[in-house]
Design a protein around this nucleic acid. Sequence first.
DNA 1: TGATAATTTGACCGGTTGGTAAACATTACA
DNA 2: TGTAATGTTTACCAACCGGTCAAATTATCA
Lengths: 223, 223
Amino acid sequence: MVLPRAAKTQRRTRIQEEKEEQILEAALEVFSANGFRGSTIDQIAEVAGMSKPNLLYYFRTKEAMHRALIDRVLDTWLDPLREFNAEGNPVAEIRSYIRRKLEMARDFPRESRLFANEVLQGAPHIEDELKGPLKELVDEKAEVIRAWAKAGKIAKCDPYHLIFAIWSTTQHYADFDVQVRAVLGQENAGDGRFEDAARFLERLFVDGLQVREQPSSDYTEEI
Amino acid sequence: MVLPRAAKTQRRTRIQEEKEEQILEAALEVFSANGFRGSTIDQIAEVAGMSKPNLLYYFRTKEAMHRALIDRVLDTWLDPLREFNAEGNPVAEIRSYIRRKLEMARDFPRESRLFANEVLQGAPHIEDELKGPLKELVDEKAEVIRAWAKAGKIAKCDPYHLIFAIWSTTQHYADFDVQVRAVLGQENAGDGRFEDAARFLERLFVDGLQVREQPSSDYTEEI
DNA sequence: TGATAATTTGACCGGTTGGTAAACATTACA
DNA sequence: TGTAATGTTTACCAACCGGTCAAATTATCA
């Protein structure tokens, strides 16, 4: 037999699992840093420590590698949002969501950049995932937030744009890391910026979501 | 003479200015959509409506095209931050900065994506600009914000992370447009999402920056 | 151990890509 | 108008890139 990479229906060898693991790890490294088109199979092969034809023995094409990687990473990437709990304390839930997203930006920046690259270039490979599973999950959680607002537990606000704001502010620290470092300067070599960001963002969103009597727009017109 | 593309010291021909303009416009279109490595000179040539060697007559290399484009766009891209006025009303200044950044995300998404692509992939071509001019500008404006906070005009907060938050939330609507559209659904075909975003973000930041007596952290521990 | 299946690699192929050379066309201007 | 400078194109090249093939190597197990 000569096509074990098609061995999807059959039991996987130990060596198959190990090598596929190695390859996907290397693919994450390379794809997240260069985007799909910017990455070459040779690069991935070198990082994985194997020859190019060997990669292609496990994944028929570059696209297949990319897709397998996305499939594998997307689930865990959305976990924080799934944990969003309708029964919990609203402010605490939002706060903990922010914290978890920031931790992921710190601990899994490559995963963040993988998606950022993809979405930024028009999401040619994950359009279905965006319009399907992602949209459904967000719709569900947006409904939760809307209910909280309606019940007066948090300030009224557009739940979708709230989610976008949390996504963007937290992922910024992974996706635009070089810029953040450049602006903050050398002294922020450690992880301090993540703690500062956590303090700032938790405060921003929590204060911004407190229920208050007078609408904020009153402040607009002074001067 | 046969190297007019080196005609940097001499006076530029009318035709030179026109063609370079055409090329940079096409380069913006292509680079912003595909990133540097993902773009080909042929693509740019086709968009520009000229032959590949003709592009290379005006810009010696692909890199030179990219650099010229970045140089040209970076300045105007930073204009909103430059307008940030220390003498103005703090809340109004921040509010108007958010509005302007959102307008740019709506009207100049390609410029936003150009930088996003670049920074996301480690800013290999603009590292100097980040650590130089950008950092200096941000430092200056951060100082303004810090002074406002010290004077009690806005809540105390980390000015750098405030700027990061405004950048990320506003540019999100340009850089991750496909995702935003996918999540919001088809019905948001027009520019409505920008108006919704403006409402949400102005409220978020303005409320989050109001001076208040009790620190927000009090809310953390309930339940 | 030996035979069979699974894994790995070097050599190679066709298409693409950044860039060049030189001939050809057009413009500017004396 | 003539000519020199400027602008444009066709043909081409070498390197790269995704992918194939067949041979070689290693693992599996009766």
